[in-house]
Simulated scan of single mutants.
Amino acid sequence: MWRSVASNALTLFIVLLIALAGVLAWGRQEFNGPGPLVQPICLKVERGASLGEVSRTLETQGAVSDARIFRIGADYSGKAKGLKFGSYLVPEGASMAQILDLVTAGGASTCGREVNYRIGVAKAEIILRELDPETNRYAEVAKFAPATDAPPQEYVDAVAEGDLRWQVTLAEGVTSWQVVDSLKRADFLEGNVEGVPPEGSLAPDGYEVDKGASRAALLAQMQDKQTRIMDDLWASRAGDLPYDTKEQAMIMASIVEKETGIADERPLVASVFVNRLNKGMRLQTDPTVIYGITKGEGVLGRGLRQSELRRATPYNTYVIEGLPPTPIANPGRLSIEAALNPAQSDYLFFVADGSGGHAFAATLEEHNANVARWRAIEAERGQADEGGVQGQ
């Protein structure tokens, strides 16, 4: 009898072990296999949230099949206490293991809302955007210019709630004064700025920052990046340039930057100015004259007067020979590259062509014909700004 009981008990134990092994195998499959999510979601993990709260949220949103399995898997992997607050983009079909990695890895949030402070030539704007997980595209929630507008309520609420990503973006062609003035208005940055960095020393780009970051440290980061860009491109510069220092190259790059926003045109624009320097011709470029008037502190907002084109200033390239004394803006990498490796051309002139680009010419006769065509377009549009390089 006892043998029968023992045998039955052993059999039951084996059956239970097999059943347990099956449950464990099923649990592993559920944890590591593709999840039930049919479209991406944005999962928000609140500061101080527990694993139980997160697992129930995931189950409610259809991201996991069983909150208990998610918690058991997190415990088994040793990550149960590693939750990081933030907003995370959970992709379609993500496994529990992948989701656990997302919410415990830390770092910047991968979805939710972001604030981008765009410092442009004409104005600086703070833009609040939110990611639509279904399209993986950002939708604008609010936008305002700190210099003239009060923060909208959507922005105030978002800052108070937290869980935002922050970015400062410099447009190509902004001046150092514009950058410093704009950063002083950024309510999410801290610290004083002593003086304005040298013109041309800041790299236009997007910079990820933390709320409360130092303005001075951010400016130093921008300067370091521009220095590295110039050092990198300087090593492969053309050998016959009419300037032989990095500072002179940056001056040329800033002029190219202000003359055209079309990337493919920059080497050609640079070739015009290089050709004029090689021939001893004055550069005769309006952006330098404008900088001499504004000192880079804002936008002129009108056309140049003839008296201003004749007025002697260190930046009036209709009057002075060669390059102005400093850059006139902060050029981007493509303009620096164009200044260091200009196109090979015989062009000496260019003027707007009505399409957003320019018409180039090697002779004054060709240039005058291009100017006449632009004047006709200008008259149709009621404009009065020629742009480009004048004849002489």
Score class of each variant (00 low, 15 high):
Arg3Pro: 00
Val5Leu: 15
Ala6His: 00
Asn8Thr: 14
Leu12Lys: 04
Phe13Pro: 00
Leu16Val: 08
Leu17Ile: 14
Leu20Tyr: 12
Leu24Asp: 02
Glu30Leu: 13
Asn32Gln: 07
Leu43Cys: 09
Val45Phe: 01
Arg47Lys: 13
Ser50Cys: 07
Leu51Cys: 06
Glu53His: 11
Arg56Met: 12
Gly62Tyr: 05
Gly73Ala: 05
Gly73Lys: 06
Ser77Glu: 11
Gly78Thr: 12
Ala80Gln: 13
Gly82Thr: 15
Gly86Gln: 04
Tyr88Val: 10
Ala94Lys: 05
Met96Asn: 04
Met96Pro: 00
Ile99Phe: 09
Asp101Gly: 10
Gly107Val: 03
Gly107Trp: 02
Ala108Trp: 03
Thr110Ile: 07
Cys111Gly: 05
Gly120Asp: 02
Val121Glu: 10
Ala124Gly: 05
Arg129Gly: 10
Leu131Asp: 05
Asp132His: 03
Thr135Pro: 14
Asn136Pro: 05
Ala142Val: 06
Phe144His: 06
Phe144Glu: 01
Asp149Phe: 03
Pro152Trp: 04
Gln153Asn: 14
Glu154His: 13
Tyr155Ser: 07
Tyr155Leu: 14
Val156Ser: 06
Val156His: 01
Asp157His: 07
Asp157Ala: 15
Asp157Arg: 09
Asp163Ser: 13
Glu172Thr: 03
Glu172Ser: 07
Trp177Arg: 08
Trp177Asn: 03
Asp187Ala: 13
Gly191Ile: 15
Glu194Gly: 10
Pro197Thr: 12
Leu202Val: 08
Gly206Pro: 00
Lys211Thr: 15
Gly212Asp: 12
Ser214Ala: 06
Leu218Met: 13
Leu219Met: 10
Ala220Pro: 14
Lys225His: 08
Thr227Trp: 05
Ile229Ala: 06
Ile229Ser: 02
Asp231Gly: 01
Ala235Ser: 13
Arg237Ser: 14
Leu241Ala: 12
Pro242Leu: 03
Pro242Asn: 07
Asp244Ile: 12
Thr245Asn: 09
Gln248Pro: 15
Ile251Leu: 04
Ser254Gln: 12
Glu257Val: 12
Glu259Ala: 04
Thr260Arg: 03
Gly261Phe: 07
Val272Asp: 02
Arg276Lys: 08
Gly280Pro: 02
Leu283Asn: 02
Leu283Cys: 06
Gln284Gly: 02
Gln284Arg: 11
Thr285Trp: 00
Pro287Val: 05
Val289Arg: 01
Ile290Arg: 04
Ile290Ser: 01
Gly292Trp: 00
Gly296Thr: 02
Gly301Thr: 06
Gly303Ala: 11
Glu308Tyr: 09
Arg310Ser: 12
Arg311Ile: 08
Asn316Pro: 00
Asn316Asp: 04
Val319Gln: 02
Ile320Trp: 03
Gly322Arg: 00
Leu323Arg: 14
Leu323Ser: 10
Pro342Asp: 00
Gln344Tyr: 13
Ser345His: 11
Ser355Lys: 13
His358Ser: 12
Glu365Gln: 14
His367Asn: 13
Asn368Thr: 12
Asn368Leu: 14
Asn370Ile: 14
Arg373His: 08
Trp374Ile: 07
Ile377Trp: 11
Glu378His: 01
Gly387Pro: 00
Gly388Pro: 02
Val389Cys: 00
Gln390Asn: 11
